[in-house]
Structure formats: structure tokens, C-alpha cells
Design a protein around this nucleic acid. Sequence first.
DNA 1: CGAATTTGACCAGCGC
DNA 2: GCGCTGGTCAAATTCG
Length: 274
Amino acid sequence: MDVRSSYKEKVEALRSKLELMRKENETLRYMLEGMSKNFSILQAKLRETKEDEIKARNLMEGDQAYHEILDSNKRARLEVPIAKPSRIFVRSADPKDKSLIVKDGYQWRKYGQKVTKDNPSPRAYFRCSMAPNCPVKKKVQRCVEDHSIIVANYEGEHNHEPNGSLGQYSSSPKSSSSKSSIVDNYVPNCPTEVTPFQPPVALDLTLSSPNNQQKENPSPRLMEDSKKINNYSKNNIMEEYVASLTKDPGFSVALAAAVARSMSDPIYTKNAMK
DNA sequence: CGAATTTGACCAGCGC
DNA sequence: GCGCTGGTCAAATTCG
């Protein structure tokens, strides 16, 4: 076979593969949006239910019980997010790149760097510099097994809103210059209260084949979950549904698979996201 | 020139 | 008490 036509075939194959991946990415984005919306609905419903519960108990048991519940709710709100450490994993666009920049919606000021015992890559220490008294810190280090993966550990909770658009995100204005490259492939694995923004990556939570997911054909699992959400929403038993989700082994397996696929998938690299 | 980063020094906690 | 390690400080350096 003539070399030229063989190259042409290869280029065509790569092109169609790229197109397929682009479509898949679109589908995954769409699914993530859906899940995000459902999550907001669930949160709102849960809040409503709790408020109703407080009102009902207030009527039944008088002021004492009312204040007890209010206090416990205040405690719960304070206890959960404060100083809750979280971790995110990010695949670097260029594995050879030594920079430890994670675009997470906040502006960071680097205040130290150390080489640790268990990892030859240096660990960088950052403080949030968007607000003068924001207590949030993060430690960023390359994964010891896979140097193309950056691990960021967050401590504390931001007392301000994140930046505007993800396109502007970087560790600092200086870091966004030509000196260091920016990491775009974001794999969220942390509670939303620590990084309350939508990362530019889609997760497939369905365990189905990544190549045949289309907008018009949402996975049976997603359809089933949507139905469940609607039913639970009607019946006002949100807490039960949330609990059932977290207990569901299929859910965590799907999540792990989605994270693994996102990490190894070239579609989520810097150039592909543009 | 001001702001951000770099990097060696310093400090605190922990195990022996 | 000593040494090791991780975290922070701050002076020097770099960059726009």
C-alpha cells in the first residue's frame, strides 16, 4: 500500500476519534450539569424540610425545643465545613512541567516550598490572597506514582467568593504569565464547600461505555437516578435519598471509575478543552 | 518600583 | 536531650 494513503487513513481515523471524544465530552458536561442541578434541588429540599421540622416542633413543644434545634443546626453548620481538609487531583497538561499551579477559582500566594521525605517532588505551600483575612491554605505536590498528577490539599474554608470565570484562574497574576504553564485537567475529589465552583471537567457516573454516550441517550442509570430524585422530591424524604446514594456501592465505584477515566483521558488536556 | 516568588533559616512536634 | 521532619518566616531576587 502506498505510504501517502496509509497516512491519510491514519489522519482520518484520528480525526474521527477526536470528533467522537468531543461528542463524549459534551455529553459528560451535560450530565454533570444535570447532576449539579439535581444536587441543588436536593439541598434546597433538605433545607426546607428541616425548617418545616423546626417550625412543627416549635408549635408542639414551645420555645425550649425550638431553641435547642436552632442551636444544634448552628453547631452542625459550623462544625462540618470548618478546617475540614480536602484533596483534589489534577492532571498536568505537560507532565514535564515542574510548576505546581492549580486553577481552582481562587488567588494564591506561595509562602514556602519543601522537599518531603516520602516524595522527591517539592511540596509548595500557598495561602489564599484574594481576601486579606482568608484562613485557607493549600499544599500542592506532584503524585509520587504519577508525576503528571498534581495533588492539592486544602485546609480551612474561604470567607469570600471565588474569582469570576475559570479562564482567569491561576495561583496568582504573576503565575498566569508566560513563566509557568496552567493546569486545566481538573479532577474534583473534594467536598464542594471547600471549592465551591464548577470545574471544567465532566464526570461519567454511569459506568457505561465512554464512546457511545450521547445527549439523546442518557444512560439507564442516570434516568433511574432522575426518577428516584423526582419521587423522593415528591415525598419530601431527601435525607433518605442522599443517605441511600452514599451507601450505594455502585455509586462509589462509578465515581472512582469516572475519576480514573478522567485522569487518563487526553480529551481533558489543556488544548482539548479550548 | 511594587508585588510575587524563591529559598535558606528558624521553629515546633514527635519519636527514640 | 537530640535528631528528624513538616510548616512558616522573611530577606533576597525576579518580573511586569
